[in-house]
Design a protein around this nucleic acid. Structure first.
Lengths: 217, 217, 217, 217
DNA sequence: CATGAATGAGTGTTCATTCAT
DNA sequence: CATGAATGAACACTCATTCAT
């Protein structure tokens, strides 16, 4: 009986994620979600106080799957760019298998107020420390330019990863991509080019400095 | 009374932008918007056929201010990074003065379906060409590494700019920033570090190649 | 200036009659009526306290044109059936030239409450007396069967005239006619048959009585 | 609770009939109807897609009771005037027990456009054939004058029945009746006089012809 | 304990009515 | 005195939430 409950709960959350991702908070209907999950609205309201609480639960559920992905990548220590490559591939795969989770994640970033702040903490506290550590360690090893703030570079790194993920799932970003490259590039091409971008962004301090000095003359 | 019309119209659009940014298309209430603008629903429906038409008008109004910014930057031809600096500063200023416009823009990117595609066209067709041209020209001049796809690098460039803008306005991204740097960096610091990031990402092909070759050994 | 006002007033009433006849009280729009009459809503509200008052005025105006028709027929004294023929022809002609007036008249009969009672008085007090007198006089002259109540026969007579008129103008009754005769009969045929119907209804007392007595045996 | 469903449904339809009869389609308020039926708007919209669908259901409900009456009269074959007497009595009783149904029927006859035509078909296709057949058969049997168009006489017959019914229910027609007979006649008197009227209208061809010929001399 | 019918507050939208110009 | 923009009450309709079964 308990297991049935867990299954129902998972079904509700998945149905909720799909509905909220597709139609947004207001556009999604509690009745339709309960129906899609094979239960009734009454059950949903036994577990969750109201629509907002259920939405939060969907978000948290969605984040848990992202966290699982990150844990996997974090486990294997390696060179910064190798880890980045793993991450990019993992996120691209995740986008293909769980597009609704990504779309919902994107919706989170649009929410305002205290809830947004709380949710940001749930996922970003991990990645921020992880990426910053990666870069700081690479910096200490001399593999990455030293005249930069590892925390902000970690942020830029994360920014590029997030946008790459959104571009794979959200209609707007997909349409936008077509303005840059039509037909759209393969996952492999994006991976390759993004790594190129990151590689030279992270390295090559001396040349950068000399380049800048030349310009100033 | 006729003189007031223009002011009222602007007030309606600003109130609409704020409301749509906060609560999304369905979540925003026409009555509340009219009230916030100091008018009545009837006036709104004199100008706009329905909620969707009003939403479109809000978007167009919002885009006009962004386009004005782009025009300004486009006007002054210069080095890629100088233009980038202008753009970053402009967007940061825009985020400070029109946070709701940025939030609304972010909302749009979360929408699904045909509307999202249409909107992407309205906004991105300009920037995609602009950035791609910048980078391709810089590449031709030898100021930018040649072993990259200018179109995808333009996309990454735009990605970083968009995220920088969102970070200045959206609660989620602001909270996220705090995990990377608390207290948050000043606009100037972000500008400086982002330019560093871009500069080395765009330049220094040889070093990048040699660096990669060394790693492979 | 006074004349202009009278013209405007007439234009308003005609526009109102057309609109109310077509769309009913709620369906007709004050703004559209004022526009069709070439004036503004303000003028309408100078003359009439509200929509209901204006509707009443339209009804009264509509009745005045019917009264004019009746006065004309009443003027020429003659045999009952000759007068009936005049009346039928007059009403048929009126239906052709003023269909909206007839439709509005039909709407009146659907209104409820004190207003309906008041309006009934405006027109029916005339016809009731007129028809009753006709029949009573014909009865006295021996031209009409004597074993009937002239007042109720006058009512039946009026009923048939009203329905004939409505059948000429109102969509429902026109469609209904098609179930009785398709293609619909000409005005002349209706006139002829209706007179036949009335003629034998009014006359032939003896035969009627003997016929009834036979049945009872 | 399920048992209540049928009662509530009937209550809704009756409340709807009363409201539509009083105020017309646009004038009647769904909220007020639901309130009068002792339920909420939500229930109404569970059963009916929209106001129009509910209006149609009210009409159908109303027509069912009329059809039941007609079926009853049709079942007992008999002399034309006996059937007419049954019909008159039935309609008078119907007017007493279901005045709102009759008022609604009268409203329908005032509607314009395609809806009116459709409704006319739903209602009149039955009666038109029934009455025409009656009269044609009576004509063949020699019980009714032969020099008339049975279809138009059936129409006049129906006209008189309809007006008799309306006179029992609609304020306007009731007030009008008072101008013909005050105090108003009993149902029995109306029945008696109307049958007299119909009887001689339908019969006595020879006398009619001779009467007419005499007049022409 | 699950269900889903009932509720009714809230939405977009219209339009009679007012009143500043 | 005419105008028609502004008002806001009222409507059809939806859907989160409750609770009798």
């Amino acid at each position: 009986m308990k297991k049935l409950t867990d299954e129902k709960q998972a079904a509700l959350l998945e149905a909720g994620i799909a509905a909220f991702a597709r139609a947004g908070f207001r556009g999604a209907s509690i009745g339709a979600i309960a129906g899609a999950a094979g239960t009734s609205v009454g059950v949903l309201y036994k577990y969750y106080e109201n629509k907002e609480a259920f939405f939060d639960a969907c978000l948290r559920h969605s984040l848990r799957s992202l966290e699982a992905l990150l844990d996997q990548v974090t486990a294997e220590e390696g060179k910064l760019l190798d880890s980045a490559r793993q991450l990019i591939r993992g996120l691209q795969a995740f986008s293909r298998t769980h597009p609704d989770h990504v779309r919902l994640y994107h919706r989170i970033t649009a929410s305002q107020g205290a809830a947004a702040v709380r949710l940001a903490g749930a996922i970003e506290s991990v990645t921020a420390r992880l990426y910053t550590d990666w870069i700081a360690r690479a910096q200490a090893e001399g593999a990455v330019r030293s005249d930069m703030d590892p925390r902000l570079f970690a942020l830029f790194f994360d920014n590029l990863l997030m946008m790459t993920q959104f571009t794979g799932c959200c209609d707007y970003y997909r349409a936008r991509l077509a303005f840059y490259r039509d037909p759209p590039p393969s996952d492999e091409t994006v991976e390759e080019e993004l790594l190129k971008f990151l590689e030279s962004a992270f390295t090559l301090e001396q040349a950068a400095i000399s380049h800048r000095e030349e310009e100033r003359k």
